[in-house]
């Protein structure tokens, strides 16, 4: 299966965050802070993590999840993990 592009990963993450935050997907941008701007609490961050694990077939530790501050960092992280698994 071809590796997803940056924009595909961003779309997946935005869709997940939109579901968790009740914000329209179009309002979610790479620079936004997950906790401060998007008001995701610990449970919502872990929901996002489980979505990413299921969608991209990877295992993400709590430590890694807590290190992700922005939407863009989450995109970079997924891309880095997918690239490392190739």
């Amino acid at each position: 299966m071809p590796e997803p592009t940056r924009s595909e990963v961003l779309n997946e993450i935005s869709a997940s965050i939109a579901r968790l935050s009740n914000l329209p997907e179009s309002e979610i941008t790479e620079g936004q802070l997950l906790v401060v701007d998007l008001k995701l609490d610990s449970l919502a961050i872990y929901e996002l993590v489980v979505d990413l694990e299921e969608r991209f077939g990877m295992q993400i530790s709590n430590e890694d999840a807590e290190g992700l501050e922005t939407v863009g960092e989450a995109v970079d992280y997924v891309l880095m993990r997918l690239s490392a698994a190739q």
Partner: peptide, 13 residues
């Protein structure tokens, strides 16, 4: 399950 995983992660935190 998904719910179990979320509980596990929160408890670990």
């Amino acid at each position: 399950t998904r719910k179990g995983k979320l509980a596990y992660r929160l408890h670990t935190k």
